[in-house]
Design a protein around this nucleic acid. Structure first.
Length: 429
RNA sequence: GGAGAGGUGGCCGAGCUGGUCGAAGGCAGCCGCCUGCUAAGCGGUUGUGGGGGUAAAACUUCACCCAGGGUUCGAAUCCCUGCCUCUCCGCCA
């Protein structure tokens, strides 16, 4: 969420309008907000002076009452003022909630270093690591490899749950688990992240805090039993960022680094026909997530190191990848800047996203009310939040199958995973 | 699922027969004084958010005693709803 004061004060200077346009969003959403906001502020002034008047009258009534006197006229006046307040407050509440509603639908402002562009064709490649592997045969898709090795079963998963689900079996299940453990170990042992395991069902407030709600409800699995709405998390970003919702942290607590393994659930509404086969786009998938809470002045350095931490996973797994800076038109709703890390898929012959590392600046912390206090200074500031996948397990699994496949259909296990697997190769039985 | 108790400032804890309560008292913190140093002691001070105001302050005003409604001229205090915590019983991985 943007700061209403910031929006108000920067509209004329075109900054906000400009930012919205760069994202390809219609800037007219601002007009309505500003109209409501100016009405709100005018009314607020009126209500506050009425309240002041009421307080004065009430105080006088109380004072008289204590010395045993009554003043019917005073009481009459107070009642009139009070009625007027009640009426105006009603209207004020409506304006407030409208203003917030509008604000909740406004995207974050891209950082000045974000490249301009309409869509993903405008993204900027930052760096590549490692040559893409060459094969003396035609490399197979990961789902073909997985099915023929008997470690992936899409058909039976369909029977159990439906399309876009998968059943991992034997060494496949173990490889999935090995990846989770390897990544968590790396981030906790070498990069200073604290491991957490959060609830994977969350409430509406948590989803609003990180920006999934209200705008993206269609992407979520919703659970509504009684009065309450719950949601399955689409990413650990949601529960982990919300750990500190409504808190005021101390300066010396920062930065805070968390890593979490969780399953993730996505409706994938609107992606019919896209990646219908394989592990790329599932309704349920595993992911290890990295989340940071930092001081504003550090957040862009922290984004670089977070991205580097995620990249290290691929380096150790010996998987070729590239890092891409998302352009303004491809940037996520809540993000001010995002690097995607894309791993090489041999059969598809292209790089595909395994991690998305973002700096949200104070967009999420403002929604979730996560602040900190500087030593010796009064008042509070919003922290900056960041997160990135470190990494998506299913897609990493798929990349391993495609890049380490052998002509005879077996798959070599990357060396760092071998201790976790107890084997160095998955072969057909 | 059934029965009860409760949610107050950074923490502990009064207030809860409605008015002088942003809220006693204690602790912690900060600033002075005192002291050979430390401790103790003494005095003062310390919340958050919004509006107005200022170059910035000062200043001023409104709101906030779990959350949201209500009663009332006036609510931390009374009523309703929700959420959360604790105790007991039942059930359960």
């Amino acid at each position: 969420m943007l700061d209403i004061k910031f929006v108000r004060e920067n509209t004329d200077k075109v900054k906000v309008i400009d930012a919205i346009k760069k994202r390809g969003v219609d800037a007219s959403i601002l007009d309505e907000l500003l109209r409501i906001e100016s009405e709100r502020r005018t009314l607020l002034g009126v209500v506050e002076s009425l309240r002041q008047r009421r307080n004065e009258l009430s105080e006088e009534i109380g004072r008289l009452r204590r010395i045993g006197e009554n003043n019917p006229t005073l009481l009459e006046n107070a009642k009139t003022v009070s009625d007027e307040i009640t009426q105006k407050e009603q209207h004020l509440r409506e304006l407030e909630s409208k203003a917030i509603q509008e604000l909740l639908f406004m995207p974050n402002i891209p950082h000045k270093s974000v490249p301009l562009g309409k869509d993903d064709t405008g993204n900027l490649e930052i760096r590549r690591w490692r040559e893409i592997p060459q094969f003396s045969f035609v490399p197979k898709n990961h789902w073909e490899i997985g099915e023929s090795l008997g470690i992936l079963d899409f058909e039976r998963a369909g029977k159990i749950a439906g399309a876009r689900f998968v059943l991992y079996k034997g060494p496949g299940a173990k490889l999935e688990r090995a990846l989770v453990n390897f990544m968590l170990d790396l981030h906790t042992n070498e990069f200073g992240y604290t491991e957490v395991f959060p609830p994977i069902i969350v409430n509406k407030e948590a989803m609003t805090g990180t920006g999934q709600l209200p705008k993206f409800e269609d992407d979520l699995f919703k659970i509504s039993n009684d009065e309450r709405d719950f949601f399955l998390i689409p990413t650990a970003e949601v529960p982990v960022t919300n750990i500190h919702r409504d808190e005021i942290l101390n300066e010396e607590d920062l930065p805070i680094y968390y890593t979490a393994y969780t399953p993730c659930f996505r409706r994938e509404a609107g992606s019919y026909g896209k990646d219908t086969k394989g592990l790329i786009r599932q309704h349920q998938f595993n992911k290890v997530e990295l989340v940071k809470f930092v001081k504003p002045e550090d957040s862009y350095n922290e984004l670089e190191s977070l991205t580097t931490n995620a990249e290290e996973v691929l380096k150790r797994l010996e998987l070729p990848y590239r890092v891409v800076a998302l352009c303004t038109g491809d940037l996520g709703f809540s993000s001010a800047k995002t690097y995607d890390i894309e791993v090489w898929f041999s059969a598809q012959g292209k790089y595909r996203e395994v991690s998305s590392c973002s700096n949200f600046e104070d967009f999420q912390s403002r929604r979730a009310d996560i602040r900190f206090k500087r030593k010796g200074q009064k008042g509070t500031e919003f922290v900056h939040t960041l997160n990135g996948s470190g990494l998506a397990i299913g897609r990493t699994f798929a990349a391993i199958l495609e890049n380490f496949q052998q002509e005879n259909g077996s798959v070599i296990i990357p060396e760092v995973l071998q201790p976790y697997m107890g084997i160095n190769k998955i072969t057909k039985k």
